[in-house]
Design a protein around this nucleic acid. Structure first.
Length: 871
DNA sequence: ATTGTCACG
DNA sequence: ACGTACGTGACAATC
């Protein structure tokens, strides 16, 4: 059995990984995609090859000497991207932590190091695998030296393997001849010029015939295409230089002890710490020893006897912190009406050594378990669970003050994540890796333990980052408010909805036929791909390409064509109807439950800014702007004896901006006049208030919106259909009128660049990693985010405070009226008729007093027999 | 699973 | 020169 060594071309693989993967950053804003990709490839290779030895070679400086020759010759060379450059030292440190030998030597390229090592190792009887993204290395291939070139195809990495024979099969030349081939055809990727006008075809022909450029030059007159003959004569110096550039030195002198390359255990604690810091969760799973000092599992207890369960509950009464979870019975799904239906048991933890999975069954009734858990929750100083809103259905919680939802806490600490599972919290906050394949009881114990232990860590971090009050005073109580809202649901008239859908169906069918007729063919109008072909190829309409997959058929494109082409107008109309029918008429109907109501979900841990999101179905995007769509709101109705009261904030975001910026002119504007867009127009365009034209008001409104979104002249020009220059002028005039706004927005960006995040008035944070990017686009995005997030986020905070106040008063006063929907700046209450006046009073007071700003908060309020009327 | 489109604030 | 407004979710088609 021959020993095997793997030699990796460090910069080449890092480079491949960098350009093959989307940009990733860890919590510190450090770019990590190249390091991640490198390690992925490394692990894959190690698994496949099972080598005894491994070495990674780096250039001392990239680019190095040999390439500088040509760089000088050519005078151009792009510097390495900053995001990649900063990852080079990181991968070296990580490799060192894994005990992997790295080699670099001043004056020698990685190629030369690899070439030399490959030769030495082969001569000492080893098999060699060279890993590089660079085909130049193919010249090193022999019977025992395999060149492996990883390729990223649709996210997966595939590897092309070349022994000497494979090079011959692929390029028709031997590895040695490959150098001469490169010398002729050049390689732009590696900055080898080659001979002008000789490409792969001609070069291959010449080298297969003469085997080297020198031999070819001796017969230069006979070379086949006369063009090549001429080119080689003229540019012989280039060919020689290219050959020199392309040749890898295999007899370089540098210190290297093979025993240093011997592979040991690469899954060291040090490496684990690095992976942790870099947030490579998938890769962490490879470390089978988790935290040796932290043998949590030794204290797991499975409980099935009632006496033991009773003893545990009694013991838990004195605990200052309880971590818990409730798990569903996996065996069968029981009817919905039983309150404890489908509960398989609970997980409970109230100390490092008190971790239990208590199963329902036998003497232990699920109902009893939940009752006991509820009692514990009342007594303890902190009751910690994940996703509390989800379990409130099963667990009646009486006190909410000391409840701790780890999902919400983790969200506040980093609102950019996609999910907040207990596995994530265990890993990130407790350095605890939880394996994928665990028995159910282990999972339960881990979740309870993580809730117990993690709540402490998260709480400390919330305090450190100034979000403790936001958490206890707003987010935690809001869990219960959102739960109430979900339970309340909103009544929807199924019959009317069905009739509406059927009306749309008729219209859609008619339009469909007309479109087919005018297009001269039958096709799927819903397919952007097919529609694009029909419109822009078959019908030859002007205004071609846009997206990478084909023609854009988006509304703004089609609207430009609609006046001239009736088909296009019909397509737009069809689209509108189809959207209304599929998403709203048919879509909503599927969510109406037996009580005649839709109980959608309101999610608290989704958005980057702190807003609530709505799903299953989304009740925050019910049509309102177009009359036809708006009619859908007529099917949203209150119960008999009730009426809807709808209240929405008037320009809350602009008012927040006025307050946060402290701009005296904007504040004054709000104090004296309610039509803010008109007064903005008057002040920016220097015309008397009463003489502001509709156009001026529209423009001012667009600028106001733009400011809130993180203004850019391009965006504004797009919105107003004006030139960028004009848009830039508007913005300049605006900032001249309200200088405080400019200072505020600039400060937001500066703060974000410095700290890496921005905050709302109530301390909510939003990280802005994009600002560290060297990519103009990404950085610009980061700047807009830094300007928008504090405004949108503060408005979201205020609305949350208002919701808490409204819901609290409705419940305190034992009213029948209930909160049913929140749409960012709007609340909908299903008000019991005798209570309507009180409800209006509560809404007005709680919403307008939710925050004390330098400008008044105002609301518009309406009542109605359905949502259409109340809005 | 991703893309294009479109509904909302 | 780069190519955009901020924040969401659902549906249908296509991969």
């Amino acid at each position: 059995m021959r020993n095997k060594i793997v030699l990796i071309d460090g910069h080449s693989i890092l480079n491949r990984a960098f350009y093959g993967l989307p940009d990733l950053t860890n919590a510190d804003g450090l770019h990590t995609n190249a390091v991640y990709g490198f390690l992925t490839i490394l692990f894959k290779i190690l698994e496949e090859e099972q080598p005894q030895y491994l070495t990674v070679a780096f250039d001392v400086h990239a680019p190095t000497f040999r390439h500088e020759m040509y760089a000088e010759y050519k005078g151009t060379r792009k510097p390495m991207a900053e995001e990649l450059r900063q990852q080079v030292p990181v991968i070296k440190e990580v490799l060192q932590a894994m005990g992997i030998k790295t080699v670099e030597c001043a004056g020698l390229e990685a190629d030369d190091l690899i070439g030399t090592l490959s030769k030495r190792c082969e001569e000492s009887g080893m098999d060699v695998s060279v890993i590089s993204g660079d085909r130049d290395l193919l010249q090193l291939a022999t019977e025992h030296v395999k060149i492996r070139i990883p390729k990223t195809k649709q996210g997966r990495t595939e590897v092309e393997d070349y022994y000497a024979d494979d090079v011959k099969a692929r390029y028709q030349v031997t590895p040695t001849e490959f150098i001469d081939l490169k010398a002729l055809m050049g390689d732009t990727a590696d900055n080898i010029p080659g001979v002008p006008s000789i490409g792969e075809k001609t070069a291959t022909k010449i080298i297969t015939e003469y085997h080297s450029i020198e031999a070819a030059y001796e017969h230069v007159e006979e070379l086949k295409p006369p063009r090549a003959s001429k080119a080689l004569l003229e540019h012989w110096d280039l060919a020689v230089m290219s050959k020199e550039l392309a040749t890898i030195h295999v007899n370089a002198e540098f210190p290297f002890e093979i025993e240093e390359a011997l592979l040991g255990n690469i899954y060291t604690e040090e490496a684990y710490a690095y992976f942790q810091k870099l947030q490579f969760k998938n890769l962490l799973a490879r470390f089978d020893v988790t935290a040796p000092a932290n043998k949590v599992e030794d204290y797991f207890r499975v409980v099935t006897e009632k006496e033991e369960a009773e003893r545990i509950f009694a013991e838990g009464e004195h605990a200052s912190c309880i971590g818990a979870c409730i798990f569903q019975d996996t065996k069968d799904v029981l009817p919905l009406f039983a309150k404890d239906a489908g509960i398989g048991g609970i997980g409970l933890c109230f100390g490092d050594e008190e971790i239990y999975a208590i199963f329902a069954g036998g003497d232990i009734e699920a109902k009893w378990l939940l009752k006991q858990l509820g009692l514990l929750a009342e007594r303890t100083e902190r009751f910690a669970m994940f996703d509390l809103k989800r379990v409130l259905k099963d667990l009646e919680l009486i006190y909410q003050d000391h409840c701790f939802d780890l999902t919400v806490a983790a969200y506040l600490l980093n609102p950019l994540k996609n999910d907040y599972s207990y596995e994530d919290v265990a890993r990130e906050q407790l350095n605890l890796m939880i394996e994928d394949k665990l028995e159910e009881e282990s999972k339960i114990c881990y979740e309870a333990y993580t809730a117990y232990k993690g709540s402490e860590v998260l709480w400390e971090k919330l305090k450190e980052s100034g979000m403790a009050e936001l958490f206890t005073e707003i987010e935690m109580p809001l869990v219960f408010t959102l739960y109430d809202m979900e339970q309340n649901g909103v009544r929807v008239e199924a019959d009317a909805l069905k009739a509406y859908g059927e009306r749309l169906g008729v219209q859609i069918a008619a339009l469909e036929q007309e479109i087919y007729k005018e297009a001269g063919e039958v096709f799927n109008i819903n397919s952007p791909k097919q529609l694009g072909v029909v419109l822009f190829e078959n019908l030859k309409l002007p205004g071609g390409k846009k997206t990478k997959t084909g023609y854009s058929t988006a509304a703004d494109v089609l609207e430009k064509l609609a006046p001239d082409y009736p088909v296009v107008a019909k397509v737009l109309e069809y689209r509108q109807y189809a959207k209304l029918k599929s998403t709203y008429a048919d879509g909503l109907a599927g969510y109406i439950q037996e009580d005649g109501r839709i109980h959608g979900k309101f999610n608290q841990t989704i958005t980057a800014t702190g807003r609530i999101s709505s799903t299953e179905p989304n009740l925050q995007n019910i049509p309102v702007r177009m009359e036809l769509g708006r009619m859908i709101r007529k099917v949203f109705i209150p119960e008999d004896g009730y009426e809807f009261v709808d209240a929405d904030y008037s320009q809350i975001e602009l008012r927040v901006l006025a307050h946060c910026s402290g701009d005296s002119h904007l504040i004054a504007a709000y104090k004296e006049e309610s039509d803010i867009h008109r007064i903005t127009a008057s002040q920016v365009f220097h015309v008397p208030f009463d003489e502001v034209t509709d156009q001026q008001r529209r423009n001012a409104k667009a600028v106001n919106f733009g400011i809130v979104y993180g203004i850019s002249s391009f965006g504004l020009s797009q919105d107003l259909s004006i030139t960028r220059k004009e848009a830039a002028q508007y913005i300049e005039d605006y900032f001249k009128t309200y200088p405080g706004i400019k200072v505020f927005l600039d400060d937001a960006v500066r703060h974000a660049k410095e700290k890496g995040y921005v905050t709302t008035l109530f301390g909510r944070r939003r990280p802005v990693p994009e600002l560290a990017s060297s990519n103009f686009m990404q950085r610009s995005f980061g700047e807009r985010v830094a300007m928008n997030a504090p405004i949108q986020g503060t408005a979201a905070d205020i609305m949350k405070i208002a919701m808490l106040g409204v819901n609290r008063r409705l419940k305190e006063q034992r009213m029948k009226s209930r909160l049913v929907l929140q749409v960012h700046d709007e609340l909908l209450i299903e008000a019991y008729q005798p209570e309507i006046e009180e409800v209006k009073k509560i809404l007005k007071e709680e919403m307008e007093q939710a925050a004390d700003l330098k400008v008044p908060l105002e609301i518009d309020m309406h009542t109605g027999a359905n949502w259409y009327e109340a809005k």
